Amino acid sequence: MPSVRHLPRGRHGLPREQVVASQRERILSAMADAMVDYGYIGTSVAAILKRAGVSRETFYEQFRSKEHCFEATYERAVTLLLEKIERAAATVDDPETTDEWTIRSNRMDRIFDAYLDHLVEDPASARVFLVEVFAVGSPAVARRAELQRLFVELIAEVLDVQTDAQMFACASLAAGIGGMVTGRIAAGDMAGVRALRAPLLDLVHRGGALYGNAFAEPARR
C-alpha cells in the first residue's frame, strides 16, 4: 500500500475531519498489509489495530466489523488501480504524427503496463482484490466481477470491438490475465507479473480481428 503518514503526537489543531480521514487511511492500509502475512481469515482486528496505531474504539467508530473494513479496503484498492489505468488509457499519441494502428497499440501497451506496474508496486493492494476477496463471500466476489467487467470494457474500447464474439474474446482475455496475475501475486512472483506485459501485447496483435477491429489486417494499411 502507498505509505500513510501518522498524525503528529499531542495537540496538533487539525480539523476533526482530517483526523478521522487519516485514521481511516491507516486502518485500511494496515488491513491490506496484515493480510499479506495472515490472509483474510487469519487477520484479526487486533492485528489491524497494532499496525494502524489506533484504538479499538476508533476502529469501531468507522467500521461495523472486520468484513466491513475489508469492503472499504477493497474499494480503496480498486479505486487506486482504476485511477492508474484510466490515466494511462487517457494518454494518446498525436494523431497528426502517428497512425491509428500505432495509437491503439500504444494505448493497449500503456494499459497493460499500468495494470501490471500497479500490482508490482502495491502488492498488498493487489492481494486484496486478486486473492483475499474470495475468502470474504459472495458480495465481495461479485464486486470483483464488476471490476473485471470495467477492465473488459476499457480493452474493448481500445480494440474497437464491434461484435458479441469479439466482446467474448476480450472477456476471455481479461479472465486469463486475471488468472495469471493472481497466481503470481499469491506466490510473490513480481518479476513474473512484469514479464507478462510483452507477451500479452503480442497476443493481442496476433489475435487480429479476434479481439476487435483495431488490429485486423486492413487497419494497418
Rank of each mutant, 00 (worst) to 15 (best):
E153D: 13
A90G: 15
E157R: 13
D122G: 11
Q62S: 14
R76D: 07
Y60N: 09
E71S: 12
E132D: 13
T102V: 09
S65Q: 05
F129T: 00
A47N: 11
E83F: 06
Q62G: 04
L130Y: 09
G39Y: 00
D122N: 12
C69E: 00
D109I: 06
I41N: 13
I155W: 12
D113V: 07
C69G: 03
A72T: 04
S138F: 15
E121H: 09
D37I: 09
V158M: 00
A47M: 08
K66D: 10
R127N: 07
N106L: 12
G42V: 06
V158K: 01
R127K: 11
K66V: 08
D113K: 13
L119A: 07
D122F: 15
E153K: 12
I41M: 09
S65L: 01
T91H: 14
E157H: 08
L130S: 04
E96M: 09
E96N: 12
V152I: 08
P95V: 11
E75C: 10
L81C: 02
R76E: 09
A34I: 02
D93H: 09
L82P: 09
F70G: 01
T58P: 04
G53C: 04
S44T: 15
V158S: 00
Y115H: 12
H118E: 08
S55G: 10
D33Q: 14
A156T: 05
R144K: 08
N106P: 00
S125H: 11
T98A: 03
A46P: 01
P139H: 07
M108E: 02
L116A: 02
S65W: 02
R56T: 14
L130R: 03
D33V: 14
T58I: 08
E86W: 11
A126F: 06
E121R: 10
L49Y: 10
S65A: 08
R56F: 04
L130M: 05
G39N: 05
R144G: 03
S55C: 01
V128F: 06
F63I: 00
L147D: 00
Y40E: 07
K66R: 08
V131I: 04
D122W: 09
